[in-house]
Design a protein around this nucleic acid. Sequence first.
DNA 1: GCATGATCATGC
DNA 2: GCATGATCATGC
Length: 476
Amino acid sequence: MNQKFDQSSQTSILSYAKKLVGKTLRNSDCVIPLDLNMIKMISGSKTKGRLGTLLESNFFGINPGNEATPDFEDAGLELKSHPIKRIKNGFSSKERLILGMIDYHELVKEDFLSSKFFYKNKDILLLSYLYEKEKLEIDYKFMLAEILSYENFSEIDKAIILDDWNKIKDKVERGLAHELSEGDTMYLGAVTKSASSKNRRTQPNGPEAKPRAFSYKNGFMTYKIRSFLDKQLEENDLDFSVNLNKSFDDFIYEKIKPYIGKSISELGNIYGKEIDSKNKSYNRLLIQRILGSKKNKIPEFEKADVTLRVIRLDKNNKPKEDVSFPAFKFQEIVETKEWEQSDFYNQLNSRFLFVFFKENSRGEFILDSYRFWNMPIKDLLEAQRVWNLTRRVINSGEIVRDIRKNKRGKEIVYNNFPGTKDSYAVHVRPHGRNKQDTFPLVVFDVFTKQTEFTKQCFWLNKNYIRDYIYKKTDYK
DNA sequence: GCATGATCATGC
DNA sequence: GCATGATCATGC
């Protein structure tokens, strides 16, 4: 019925798919013309996922119904459309790549290579398009058509993904599906996926849990699309290859362990010759050198969305400072109605590597310990509460509480955002180059009548870090 | 000494 | 020139 390509050949399907690169669904010759009703439909508000459906029906002319099998069953190829976004100098993946719902009951009976996940997702026809907020989906330009194949991943990546899958399975086997987190794993994550936050599914050995899907994490996808777009070989920075049987966690352990107990100046003598000790990130740079990276970005960390945070503790284990996140846009906070869609939720859901330096009696900072950490669900709910409070303040227009002059006549602006006393876990504080560094407000501020306000961000409270993160260190 | 406002240093 | 991680500064 279909003469556009050979249904049983990946090569044939791929070369047909490549005809879409540089085109949009609206202007591609190969697309069955869209009638007016359909255009109306996709320009409506509920359009998410429509692009994928249109690709199937109007470009490939297929009608896959079966969830369990790949879209091109004979070729063993699964079709995925996937958004890319433009950033400062280049492109990054806009979203995780969703790879099918997790059936908790089936999962525990499976092995990776014979699993439902592997059967469906081992070879993916990836069609990535450039997401542009103001455009209709049929006007998104496709930027690449490539086969994302497990078989072609590096040995290290394959080992990591296998390990991830097993970690998820293991947790479900232990009846802990309700405690799954994206922060549990590196490249393959178990992401919450549900139309309503109240949805629950049963699991074989534990209480009801949120529905979750497998996904390649956003950082992982960013590396994949860049390697396709730039045709560059994907680099591995860290020297994992020494021992493939070691997990990422073991690797970190072996790298950091020899330096535990050393002071910053001792580490500086070993690693810090090219680093300026005045650098505010000096301790962080030392840790990156210890891990074996000469760069300031570590590919393996980025691919796994692992966030490295280096903390100085005082003698009582209290962090010197709270931990900041990127500044948020007031408009985005308000426009994002669903907590699980918010940047803050996504930041908190990633895996953290906390490294602690602790002050000794002579006032020196000693490399003390580290911890892989992800935020427990209870605390995510607390963060959600503070996020909601923050939205309320922005919407109310009552941002500024007071303006006072200090002794030198300098104006200090006090705000109404949730502070450290409003939550045991997180708060909101300024975060810009200076207080003139602002973002537009949603409604003008009642107190100052201004439409801009100093950039703010969420922070993890230092007491929270001491009591909930430092307290349980992996290695000491 | 804490809470909170403000800013620094760097890389990209 | 800006985003980011980290830290400084000061009033209460």
